[in-house]
Amino acid sequence: MSLLSMKSRKVKTNGPLDTNQLTKTQQLLKDKWLYVLLLPGIVYFVLFKYMPMWGVLMAFQDYSPFKGFWQSDWVGFDHFQYFFQNPDFFRLLRNTLILALYDLIFFFPAPIIIALMLNELRMQFFKRTIQTLVYVPHFMSWVIIASITYVFLTTSGGAVNAVVEYFTGEKINFLSSPDWFRPMIIGQVIWKETGWGTVIFLAALASVSPEQYEAAIMDGAGRFRRMWHVTLPALRSTIVILLILRLGNFLDQGFQQIFLMTNSLNRSVADVFDTYVYFVGITQGAFSYSTAVGLFKAIVGIILIYGADYLAKKLKQPGLF
């Protein structure tokens, strides 16, 4: 075991490059090819990410597309004030946070677990077939998934409710019950995206050498200890990075999915920021207001990203940087 941990530590340390002794100019010159490689990417970010960044300022305007940015009126923090004072704000925040937490707790680990399970399969054909099958739902649109969900879960002849009724004698209103809304949403996400999520972990596992496993076997490690001590550590940096990045979009939810699964009976738990912004922004054309809500979400996101990164570093985990 000590052998293994030594190895993984070795991987992370940087080479003994004595750049410290060089002046900045020397350093720039020395790394000139690296900057050449970097250049196209920087051009991209400047052009397509930072040039349009003025759009963020629409949050402080009453932006009118016809008048344009310069002619539109500035309103300061009006939109934010309106948003925070909205009687629905806390309900939206609560719903969004709970759903985001559910997502983190129940969905986030799912691809990792499935990747580990797939990794234990030794028949290559079986493994690849399953891998391909589980990733298929990623390509199905929410419209179709919502439709199929209805067919299975409805109380009027749905297959799932037939089974539930057979065992318990009662039907469950999955589709209309506020209690079932969140499990249903997370269930759909798990079904749709788990297979897709495994791809990146399987790629990370591909870089684990057979020798590491063999060494572990030599050490007398059993099946589960190998999983714990070899496979999982190989995924660690990927897991941490994906987790941090996920936090950046913590308050984002799949708008279309939630929109399709919302109805009059479960709306109290179903309304989240994204559906709210849709109605206010798209159907009611309030560009500036929806930009303001988006900005609020982004600020929360950036705080979470840096917070998580800081925490990761504290815990001696590889962070974002």
């Binding site: 930072y50 003025w54 759009g55």
Partner: peptide, 8 residues
């Protein structure tokens, strides 16, 4: 920064 902020 661009992962969370965008111009729209």
């Amino acid at each position: 920064f661009t992962m969370v902020f965008n111009g729209g």
